[in-house]
Structure formats: structure tokens, C-alpha cells
Nucleic acid binder design. Structure first.
Lengths: 113, 113
DNA sequence: GCCGACAAGTAGGCTTGCTACGCATGAAGG
DNA sequence: CCTTCATGCGTAGCAAGCCTACTTGTCGGC
């Protein structure tokens, strides 16, 4: 699946992943890959700038730590981020139900449910 | 709702609208608005270039007609467009189920299905 | 005569994600 | 010892996609 189609929903995904616990960038990528059965395999060039954006927006906060001599930047969801996530969720439901009205409906007879 | 979030799915919506019958640009806009209860109110600057793209791609074909002295360009779905629509539909299901796994899940207890 | 609904279109800009890089450490294998 | 791979962070530049704002033109009502 072309991850490209994420357009506009990447931030929501990142917030959703961080909702279940703080993670560093590399782990976020793995979490997305695992939880989506490999369908979301996002490159670092997509994730890191997105995290920066979210931090600038105040939706996440980061702190450095060193593990095995490797520097990690761990991100956690802020209160504002939690609120933003709630908004993203309702926005997603609205979006998916609206688009679904056009694309999920009219399933040709014989198609599996 | 910010129609901006359509990113990447507009073509599919247009094809889906035309699936139910040929329409001219202005009528397509109205059809989207009506069938979405006013949630999709797309400006002409979004629709017309998109229809051009679809025509260039061979997914729709157009023909001019004059009604009440007003020129209309009516679009109809081609066979290739019908195939493309099928592909868009399966892509949409994959996309929505993948993103939904992150955003629909974890609905706090008490939320309506 | 003017304004609003109908009908089509273009130009330019902004956001967003991707590709392709670069840098650094630690463990494993030759 | 040296190379390679997995871990881990990051930037620069590009391409796609949709929106804002504007233009052109007809018809009907005031």
C-alpha cells in the first residue's frame, strides 16, 4: 500500500501511537509497522519532520536519553496532544463516513462483505 | 469539515459520482454536496482541474452541449474509469481499515458503535 | 442597468509526504 | 582489523494535491 495516501492523517497516527506510551522515533516507525501488519512502513524522512512539527505545535514533548551509547529522543504526548488526538479521531470518523458513503456503498452484488 | 483532508481520494469520489450517471462539472459539485449532506462543498478550482486530470488519464470522457445558451461539458465514466474506480475502492478499504485500526480502535467505553 | 445563479476555466501558493542523502555507535563475521 | 548490518537521528530538495482568488459569459428578476 502506498503510504503516500496518508495525506493529512499522519499526525493523527503518530498521536495515536504515542497515546499508548512514550516512544522514540525509531520505535514509533516499528510500532506503526507492527500494528499495521507491515502496511505502514514509513521512512525516517517522513517521521522525523512530522515529529518536529508536532513538537512545534505543542502536541508532543521530547527528551533525550542515552541507551548503549546511542542517543535517543523520546516523545510523549502532551495534554494538548491528547485533545488534538480526540479532535483528529472525530475528524477521522467524519471523513471516513463521508468518503465511505461514496466508496463503501454500491458494492457490486457478489462482493464479499 | 475541511475538504482539504480529501488528499488523494478526490479522484475516487469523482469516479463514484459519475458511476451513477453522466454529469457536468457544476452538477458534480452539487451532487457531492447533496450526497454528503453539505459536508463536501468543493470549489470549482478543485473540481475542474481534477476532471481534466481524469480525462487525461482516460478515466472519463467529455462532450459539450448547450442548454439554455449555457455551455456544458458533460463527463461520463469510461471502461478504464470503471476499472480505476474498482481499484480506488479496494484501496480505500485498505486505507480506511489500516488507519481505522489506529483511530477507530481504543474508543473509550460508553462510546456508541 | 445590476445582481445573483448557472457554467467553465486558469494561475499561483501552501501543505504534506517522499527520495536520497549524511553522520554516528555497537555487534557480528570474515 | 575491517566491513557490514541494525540502531538511531537528522536535513535538503522534489513532487503531488487541493485551495484561494480571479476571469469570462449567459439568463432571469428587480
Amino acid at each position: 500500500m502506498k503510504a503516500q495516501a496518508l495525506h493529512g492523517h499522519l499526525d493523527a497516527l503518530l498521536l495515536a501511537v504515542l497515546e499508548q506510551g512514550s516512544l522514540h522515533g525509531y520505535a514509533i516507525i516499528e510500532s506503526l509497522r507492527n500494528r499495521s501488519d507491515g502496511q505502514l512502513d514509513l521512512p525516517t524522512g517522513t517521521i522525523y519532520p512530522a515529529l518536529r512539527r508536532l513538537e512545534r505545535a505543542g502536541h508532543v514533548a521530547s527528551s533525550w536519553s542515552t541507551v548503549n551509547g546511542r542517543e535517543r529522543r523520546t516523545y510523549r504526548l502532551t495534554d494538548a496532544g491528547r485533545q488534538a488526538l480526540a479532535g483528529e479521531r472525530s475528524g477521522w470518523r467524519e471523513f471516513s463516513s463521508t468518503v465511505g458513503r461514496f466508496l463503501d456503498a454500491d458494492i457490486p452484488p457478489g462482493a464479499p462483505a
